[in-house]
Design a protein around this nucleic acid. Structure first.
Lengths: 313, 313
DNA sequence: GACGCTTACGTTCGTCGTAACTATT
DNA sequence: AATAGTTACGACGAACGTAAGCGTC
């Protein structure tokens, strides 16, 4: 068995079982992949890919199991490379962060600036995606860290560490009546029914605990008029600016400097807070600068305690 | 990075850092290994082996970490091979059991007979060793199962399953006075002080909870006269037959048919029972016939429940 | 001088890519 | 005719083993 045979196999599986595409993706010839996969199947004594005539159309039962193991092999190969790099040069390497829109746009920029000043030689890559994609990127070794509110803590393949809590807040256009009534420090808190008097613009239901928002209205017997569900906060802001309604977004997505045309109302008494997590692949070798990044992001997460979670859990 | 480079590295580490020995062990040339290890170190950018002049004398810090990861790589490669074999032919393959003297000599023979009748094509290998060796064999992928009373349950790298409990028993020569006094079903139980009236022959202190035996005497304020400490039950039997004293052995090591020249006294009220465990490498692919073997050995351990422990724990 | 690793070099084997071929859609 | 995979084959490169070299105990 050769490593490149396993790599070819994974590449084919990751390219819709299209050998030609896989060949393009890894800059080699299609017959080469075909042959090496045959050799691997011959050596193991079982077919890995289900075939329809000559075409590969899926995995066999043993193929599915073999694939999982092969991924683990490459995870460890990656770790070995990381260990080499780590000892060869503490401050050089790469860091790929998979994260959501909100983090990438509002939370991470300042952290990343600090990080790159400290580690100018680290090759930093941000991959934006939806929670599930993010988590899979880390599990498949295509990203080092997952940062998101949803999906991270629930996956056993990752070690997840709570970073910070955020609350929902109500976004209104400038001079909105809510601002006078509720925006002052000592003002009384806004009630759910009052929010529902206006059309509501908020996150898509596929997102960050959005179901909870609906449940809160439901339980209160109030039916909000949700006119727009968006995939990111910027879209929500745009429509709130246009006075199409009030917005419900994460407080972290509100930037007092940039969002001068918008006002903020505290609604933390109405909805439960959310936790944003950082996820690391279980058992992976973590470079020092990655520990540092995590600590910059969430100062309570020290190398020592993360190390402990990595090995024991 | 090539698999055989990693293999060479492990082989050198497992052969006292002697490249020539490693070369002999895997039937290749010494310069070949030297070169490939250099190439690997060059690729990773760090030295793996500590050198004294030209000689390899140990591992560097990165080397230690890399070695652990490399072993994991081969564990998964082994698993892939097992998966292949499993689907290619359910009843063919190999099963290597690492176990102690007592198990190998007294407990396993009948099980193995049954097993081989059921799976005549399985290549069965028994490796005898001391608890620590046994466990390491499994961890290093050189054995599939560890069967022992000590050492198995304590290692986190293994899934350990309790198989059966055994008790200590007192072994005496034929016509010994104890036999009349204590061997009958309704006889009163022997007391610790009575045992201590005779020279005692028992297991070496390095062994299976032997410390417990000493503690029991100690706590009772009785000082036994231990004249021989042996590494296996057969040696103990030999000296008991010669009437040099009474023996304290595992009840599983007493065979009524073969040991006609010896008598047995129950002492289970004096010493705490011991549990014999079977250990499997965490996360390994387990062949069906291995599940069957375990069930033959400990009928309460069904495939389904073992599978559950393998994946969740 | 025996041991142990490295360097040098020719042989061999395996991998790769091109090209031709076959089978599906 | 286009797409997808296999077979065939020559070229190149990598790994191996032998032999010679170098340093150390």
């Amino acid at each position: 068995m050769k490593l490149h045979q396993l790599r070819y196999m994974l590449e084919v599986a990751d390219n819709n079982f299209n050998v030609s595409e896989a060949a393009d993706a890894i800059y080699t010839s299609q017959p080469g992949i075909s042959k090496q996969i045959r050799l691997l199947e011959d050596e193991l004594g079982v077919p890995i890919f289900a075939r329809d005539g000559k075409r590969l159309v899926g995995l066999t039962a043993p193929g599915r199991k073999i694939l999982l193991r092969a991924r683990q092999v490459f995870r460890e190969i990656d770790n070995i490379n990381r260990i080499g790099q780590h000892y060869a040069d503490e401050d050089t390497g790469s860091l790929t962060i998979a994260t959501t829109h909100t983090q990438a746009r509002y939370v991470l920029p300042s952290i990343i600036q600090r990080f790159l000043r400290r580690y100018p030689k680290v090759n930093l890559v941000i991959k934006q995606g939806y929670p599930e994609e993010i988590v899979n990127l880390v599990i498949d070794g295509k990203a080092d860290l997952a940062i998101a509110t949803e999906g991270v803590a629930s996956r056993n393949e990752l070690i997840s560490l709570p970073c910070y809590q955020w609350h929902r807040c109500l976004l209104v256009a400038k001079k909105h009546v809510f601002l006078k009534k509720f925006a002052n420090k000592n003002a009384k808190k806004i009630a759910l029914a009052e929010i529902a008097e206006y059309p509501l613009i908020t996150y898509d239901n596929a997102f960050a605990g959005q179901q909870h928002v609906l449940d809160v209205f439901e339980n209160a017997g109030i039916k909000p008029n949700i006119i727009i569900t968006a995939l990111d906060s910027d879209v929500i802001k745009t429509y709130v600016e246009l006075k199409l309604g009030v917005g419900l977004i994460a407080n972290t997505a509100y930037d007092p400097k940039k969002d001068k045309s918008l006002g903020l109302i505290d609604v933390s008494h109405l909805f439960r807070p959310n936790t944003t997590w950082v996820g690391v692949s279980r058992g992976s070798f973590v470079r020092n600068y990655v520990f540092d990044f995590i600590e910059m992001f969430a100062p309570h997460l020290k190398k020592k305690s993360i190390m402990a979670s990595l090995s024991t859990e």
